[in-house]
Write a protein that binds this DNA or RNA. Structure first.
Lengths: 251, 251
DNA sequence: GCGACGCGTTCCGGACACCGGGACGACATG
DNA sequence: CATGTCGTCCCGGTGTCCGGAACGCGTCGC
């Protein structure tokens, strides 16, 4: 485990917290040891300190993230402002489509999900606010990649297009062609490329400089996806972009 | 500053992170020093470590919370499950009312806001997901207090009912009478008690044991508040409670 | 029942990551 | 120019942190 190279306590603390970022609700001390490579006694003490700080909680003999981590997230300004401004538009898009609506930003090589509106009987997605997915195989990611610097795209291609589903596009030329199309149409599709059985239409939220700040998407199970209206998504994204510019002129 | 008693580095780290939990988007090193009482060199180093961990970011000479803090929040299971399950119902409530809908949990003496749906031209509230407010002067808080152990209520009263607005209820007997009424009706009101110019109707989400797990509210500016339908809010809360029980039988 | 194993908790001598006062350069102001 | 405030860096000192080891508990297989 590369993370046991960490010598700084703060770094170690966040390595431990990050262990919970996957699908695990709770982890035992032994599991944390296995994941971080930190010595058991060290980890036990660190976990105790994280509990005292509210970052972790006990659940029986297991640990889970504490409410403090939720609370601190509200103060992450970039996400909060985007979410606040986008919410009315996302809400309208949901009403127009009756399918799951998602808002995401770009972070590293990944899509970082910011918010989501879903109704009864909408597609069950593995994504959630705070979650991440590789950019190259999600409509949201591609929508943003198409309006990102070429170095970003090239970097992602160089690091490899690992398949996430049987339909993931893994050839650089095909991805680049898709991004070219998105640059023209401002609409990105994900035809079961990230999640089998789910299709997605996304559009980039652009800043004043033409770069992607975020993206909006509508997702549906494949049989229902033919009803997804690209124009609604694109319009929503455009209006969010405008609302952001109105909120922070010069941004 | 009481927090400078902290000797554990983890504790100090979270004291620093908590400085951003208020309304400040960014803080300078000097402001962090003033707020935490930690020595400047110590703080400078700690902030650097938090940056390395992704918990803080630089913005010019200032600091702000980093994207990592948003990302970790997605893994706080209790909030995530509640939010996921409640979302379709919140969405319906928004459509019925066209006013700001909020979902909250109870944490310590405070309401912790979990999610919010708002539209164009809805009331501007100072609350946001991750934010907190005293329980005794918010409809959400009172809805939950009414279905909490008596010790909880007595503790809050003993610690003092500090006014948040000119309309905040600060006499224990009146609060208790309100809670009695809420126990009968399952509806709580906030008539400009927490925020001047804003009224709120809330209902508790009850667990199988009759205790409040969370609460739902609709807020509107005072002139529009007479249209708020208590029955819609109560029905929404009841259905969320049922959905939670279906999701985790025995909880 | 007994031994082995895995788990979490606790102890304690050692050490090194962290501490913080102080120096320094940059910038703003009178 | 002098003063004050800011953020950054240095470095000797030290106390918080480290982690191996021991321990108690529970489970499982023989």
């Amino acid at each position: 485990m590369a993370e046991n190279d960490a010598t700084s306590l703060v770094r170690r603390a966040f390595v431990v917290l990050a262990c919970f970022s996957t699908s695990d609700r709770e982890l035992s001390l032994a599991q944390l040891v296995a994941r971080t490579g930190l010595p058991k006694a060290t980890l036990h003490r660190l976990a105790g300190q994280l509990i005292a700080a509210g970052a972790l909680e006990r659940s029986g003999r297991n640990y889970r993230l504490g409410v403090k981590m939720f609370e601190l997230s509200g103060a992450v300004w970039a996400q909060r402002v985007l979410r606040d401004i986008a919410m009315p538009f996302l809400q309208e898009l949901y009403e127009q489509t009756r399918e799951t609506v998602q808002l995401a930003m770009f972070d590293g090589d990944a899509v970082l999900y910011i918010d989501r509106i879903r109704g009864h009987n909408t597609a069950v997605l593995p994504t959630f606010p705070g979650g991440r997915m590789p950019a190259y195989c999600t409509a949201l990611g591609k929508a943003m990649l198409a309006f990102s610097p070429a170095e970003t795209v090239n970097g992602i291609i160089a690091r490899g297009l690992i398949p996430l589903s049987p339909r993931t596009v893994t050839t650089p030329n095909l991805l680049i062609a898709q991004l070219r199309s998105i640059q023209r149409t401002r609409i990105a599709y994900d035809a079961e490329e990230s999640v089998s059985g789910v299709c997605c239409v996304a559009a980039p939220v652009l800043g004043a400089n033409g770069r992607a700040i975020a993206a909006v998407s509508v997702s549906a199970t494949t049989p229902r996806a033919r009803r997804l209206r690209a124009e609604s998504v694109r319009s929503c994204a455009t209006r969010i972009g405008q609302a952001l510019r109105d909120h922070s002129p010069g941004a």
